[in-house]
């Protein structure tokens, strides 16, 4: 399994290279440049700035310059927040995003799997129906509605939590962002769990376990859940990567110092180095998590073997 993991890690390098190349040129296709704004710059000034950031060179040359810099782990300067390098911005933002994201995923896993299992055990009853309806709401309400709504209710009407802000990372500032991030994930996980749980509960090995006279609780937890969790695990790979890299909506509404805002704002600002930086982070994260998921598969399912 170790050699399999190693091999997989090595194949990520060419993939990453392709991603960098695709992202680099795609980004440059977009019209408008980093220094176009309502204060249009005189041409000579724009020329100075472009030169200061090597943006006046031919695109292919810029590409190779960038590759060279990446190899030395230099992500370049941010064109918008000019006091920070892209590396600094990502390092300062990633912990907050990842922390919130991981908490949200763990929350989603615990609540989602429990609700999904419950719904499956009580299939086609009122409990099943209400769990699935509530979880549908989690999916159907866009986060740009949910986040301000939570903030309004808990921050202002009930005055229980700060409306937004970070407060140096104090717990009360993190509660609402985590909930807002977790809600749709809870819903997805619950639905996935219910689906596969229903299937597993009808399978032979669960029937066998029941026939052996094991307690229902034990059957569910020990046998059924292990099989039913598979689709959830494969869903979790990409979902964790997406949630851990932050959400522009949640972070801008709750004032979280994360990197989620950069995915959208850097693209809209044409902050090329920052866009590249977050694209690379995302790609690396998703590849690592997918690898982790595949390894988890091997652990959970004895039929899967990697050599």
């Amino acid at each position: 399994m170790l050699s399999y993991a190693l091999r997989r890690l090595i194949t990520t390098i060419p993939t990453l290279f392709v991603i960098i190349t695709v992202a680099f040129f795609m980004m440059r296709l977009a019209p408008g440049g980093p220094f176009d704004s309502d204060r249009a710059l005189p041409p000579e000034i724009e020329k100075n700035i472009m030169a200061a950031y090597d943006l006046d060179k031919p695109l292919v040359e810029q590409y190779f310059l960038y590759l060279g810099r990446i190899l030395t782990a230099d992500f370049g300067p941010s064109l918008k927040i000019r006091d920070f390098s892209v590396g600094e911005l990502i390092l300062s933002g990633a912990p907050a995003s990842m922390q919130l994201g991981l908490s949200a995923i763990v929350l989603a896993l615990v609540i989602g799997v429990s609700l999904g299992t419950l719904a499956a055990l009580r299939q086609n009853t009122g409990a099943d129906f209400s769990i699935m309806t509530v979880s549908m709401i989690g999916i159907a309400v866009p986060n740009f509605v949910m986040a301000p709504f939570l903030s309004l209710v808990f921050g202002i009407y009930l005055n229980l939590l700060p409306t937004s802000g970070w407060g140096g990372g104090a717990l009360q500032y993190k509660i609402m962002p985590i909930i807002a991030l977790a809600l749709p994930q809870i819903a997805y996980v619950a639905r996935l769990t219910r689906g596969s749980m229903v299937e597993v509960l009808h399978s032979n090995y669960v029937r066998t376990a029941r026939a052996k006279g094991l307690r229902e609780q034990l059957v569910v937890v020990r046998h059924a859940l292990k099989g039913a969790i598979m689709p959830v695990v494969s869903y979790l790979g990409p979902a964790t990567a997406a949630v851990m890299t932050g959400s522009v909506v949640i972070e801008s509404i709750f004032g979280v110092p994360g990197i989620g805002t950069y995915f959208v704002n850097a693209a809209l600002n044409r902050d090329y180095p920052l866009v590249m930086g977050v694209v690379i982070i995302y790609a690396v994260l998703i590849m690592l998590l997918n690898l982790l998921v595949d390894l988890l598969y091997a652990v959970l399912d004895p039929k899967v073997r990697y050599v």
């Binding site: 408008g32 440049g33 980093p34 176009d36 704004s37 309502d38 249009a40 809209l268």
Partner: peptide
């Protein structure tokens, strides 16, 4: 978006 707008204006 703003970038395209002002770039086209220019």
């Amino acid at each position: 978006d703003g970038k395209i707008h002002y770039s086209d204006l220019k």
